Amino acid sequence: MNERLPEDLRTLVKAYADELVAMRRDIHAHPELGWAEIRTTRIVRERLEAAGLQPRILPGGTGLTCDIGPDGEVTGRILALRADLDALPIPDEKNVPYRSTVPGVAHACGHDVHTVVVLGAGLVLADLAREGRLNRTVRLIFQPAEEIMPGGALDVIRAGELKGVERILALHCDPKVEAGRVALRTGPITAACDRVLIRLAGPGGHTARPHLTADLVYALSKLVTELPAALSRRVDPRAGLSLVWGRIGAGSAANAIPQVGEIEGTLRCLDLAAWHQAPELVEELVQTVARIYGVQAEVQYDRGVPPVVNDADSTALFRAAATAAFGPQAVIGTEQSLGGEDFAWYLESVPGALARLGVRGPGEVGVRDLHQGTFDVDESAIPVGVSLLAAAALLAFD
């Protein structure tokens, strides 16, 4: 253990390891969707209160924050540690004792791990604070609705919970990285992610006479293929802009051209400037295609999240913490992902960084990707995450 960290940090973390694994399994078995994380919020609140802390429930009724400081006071420079509570509307396909008991809902992105890791770091730091060994305030943030764009981070910010915060850190499970390792990147580490819904309308008619009406399904199919293609020629390829459809619907009879149809998908972008230009460009291209085929088009473009851009100093803090706690071999680099993360909203107000926590088991064949019903983690990653965040809190602002 690095001399700047308490010699007993590993022992303090180990004391909570079994409890945190059990809590993670309980949360995993009882997942809750965004802004409905009532049970999860209660479990975290009760555990923090049992540790003598005073958590604050967010105004919406789900999610909470909690300050840990010297002598129980909020003093000095505040470091925030953020977790997300919500699950996904995906069936749990694993055959494990802690499989989801809620039909069609699962923790398929690791938020159950994020929750217990930040909780565990808070419990360790509270122990140190009681012994007079914490010289700064740490704010725990357990936010709702990360999976619902534009994300529950905005609720936390509106509630004033970034007031006084000078730096914010978060972890995200990464099934491509082995448990025991932490993947870091300075600069953009995720992408912007927006939702695009396009509705077409026309007079409808008989499929025998498409020339006398507007062939709405054909126009819809042209948008499905031509809009992503046109964007790839109108935007700098280095921006990494990608439009992928997830839903298409129109009509109910084989011999009738429908009057309405919809396509829906996500637009992701690695570059902040291109992200700001995307809504206007999508509108222009959609209307161009619609005019060619004589249909009316309505574009609903919902801003999701900007890219997470890791601050250099915060990334260096993560690196120092991981090296101090586990040695330099525990730190690896990582690429920018096209995934979206509402942690980006915090970074528009304060500097910070998102690190990737390895959760892949030793010798595991294949990768159980995020947002799949088979996703699971090597639970040895939990004390690793706790140690990393606790170490970062102790080394912050030195």
Rank of each mutant, 00 (worst) to 15 (best):
R356N: 13
L212Q: 12
A22T: 12
L394C: 12
C269Q: 12
H111T: 01
G180I: 04
I382M: 10
V177Y: 06
L347V: 12
G249T: 03
W245V: 12
D342A: 09
E283M: 07
G187E: 11
I90Q: 06
G104K: 02
I248W: 01
A121R: 10
E73L: 09
W345K: 03
E264V: 04
R133N: 00
S380A: 14
R4E: 14
V386E: 06
A129W: 02
V299A: 14
G251T: 05
A254I: 06
A129K: 03
A50E: 12
H107E: 05
Y98I: 00
L338K: 09
R136G: 02
K163I: 08
V116D: 03
D302E: 15
V124F: 10
P307I: 07
T11W: 06
R42K: 13
T40G: 06
D194T: 01
N310K: 00
T315D: 13
E73Y: 04
S232C: 09
L81R: 02
P59D: 06
G358S: 00
V377E: 02
I68F: 11
N95W: 03
V386L: 09
L394V: 06
S242A: 13
A355I: 03
V295N: 11
F343H: 06
E280G: 03
A390G: 12
L212E: 14
S380K: 11
V13A: 14
V196L: 15
V260C: 09
E298W: 02
A392E: 12
A321Y: 02
R56F: 05
Y98G: 02
Q287D: 10
T225K: 02
S380P: 12
A253L: 00
R199K: 15
I168W: 05
A230G: 00
Y16E: 13
A108S: 12
L81H: 10
H206S: 14
A353K: 00
D71Q: 11
H172E: 04
L197D: 14
G265A: 13
I157D: 01
L81G: 05
L270M: 01
L88E: 04
N2A: 09
P144M: 07
V367P: 01
L267Y: 06
T62V: 15
E19V: 10
G246N: 08
W345R: 00
K94H: 05
P328T: 08
A106C: 14
F326D: 07
L370I: 06
Q287A: 11
P55G: 07
L125K: 04
P91I: 00
V282A: 07
T65S: 10
